[in-house]
């Protein structure tokens, strides 16, 4: 499909970000092949130092840290992509409904979005996740449910403008179907939607990691946040050099992912 962004040449920064992100997706896709051990396998000696057998050593329970880290790629990256995708989709679809269906729908949806926006997102996501059953799906739903309003607000503003443009007015005047209208709106809103998808994915990683870190969410899901939490819970983390392989790699992995996503958007402007 042709759109506004594909024609533009990518900046060096964007290319780098895309390369980094491809590595992440590659690892996420082939995680089971890369992982030397199962994440549930705690038969290894505890607190082993990095060696050929355990690349990043083992934790106090006897899990292989490298396996946990790689497994986190799959879980966290997939989860973040799904959360980013669905929150962007929800926001965009609701924005379209608000603009297409007329005043009453617009009023109701915008009011709801405003209600959500008043409370800081992180607080409300944590609140919801605390009261929900601690499963991965619920954490995911909490993130999606409370992060669409920002997407909605921006996309609605953009759509409002587009709906009033002559090209869409022509289709409306000719009683074109929703598909006809969408076809004309797409080129104008797709760049914003893409940007939001990346931003929302970024946000989802941060939220999920933060939630796991606070001990909210699925206790069995071995996400990056869980790994950070486990490292922080280990009382002798800074006593020896343990933090070098227990704590630093996972922090780096999260930071690089979040920063690449952020820079990808930033470079596109």
């Amino acid at each position: 499909m042709k759109n506004g962004t594909s024609g533009k040449r990518m900046s060096f920064r964007q290319k780098t970000c895309i390369m980094v992100l491809s590595i992440y997706f590659f690892i996420a896709a082939f995680a089971p092949l890369i992982m030397p051990y199962e994440v549930t396998d705690f038969s290894h000696p505890s607190l082993a130092e990095p060696c050929r057998q355990y690349l990043l050593g083992t934790d106090e329970m006897g899990h292989d840290i490298f396996s946990l880290l790689i497994y986190g790629f799959r879980l966290t990256v997939c989860m973040a992509l799904a959360a980013g995708f669905f929150s962007t989709l929800t926001g965009t679809v609701l924005a379209f409904c608000a603009c297409y269906l007329g005043k009453a729908a617009d009023h109701v949806i915008t009011m709801t979005a405003d209600l959500f926006i008043i409370v800081p997102e992180m607080v409300i996501v944590m609140f919801a996740a605390v009261f929900a059953e601690p499963t991965m799906i619920n954490t995911e739903l909490a993130i999606i449910l409370f992060s669409w309003p920002r997407v909605y607000k921006i996309i609605r503003g953009k759509l409002k403008d587009c709906m009033n443009s002559s090209k869409v007015q022509y289709t409306m005047m000719m009683k074109g179907s929703i598909a006809d209208v969408l076809q004309k709106l797409m080129p104008d809103i797709m760049p914003s939607v893409q940007t939001y998808f990346i931003l929302q994915t970024n946000k989802a990683v941060t939220y999920e990691t933060t939630l796991s870190f606070f001990g909210i969410g699925d206790p069995l899901a071995k996400t990056w946040g869980k790994l950070i939490r486990a490292a922080m819970d280990y009382e002798n983390l800074y006593y020896d050099r343990v933090f070098l392989w227990y704590f630093i790699p996972v922090i780096l992995v999260v930071v690089v992912f979040v920063v690449s996503l952020a820079l990808l958007v930033h470079g596109g402007e």
Binding site: T171, M174, K175, G176, S177, D180, Q183
Partner: peptide, 8 residues
């Protein structure tokens, strides 16, 4: 686009 809508 016009052809399509009219035919419909």
């Amino acid at each position: 686009e016009c052809t399509r809508i009219c035919k419909r």
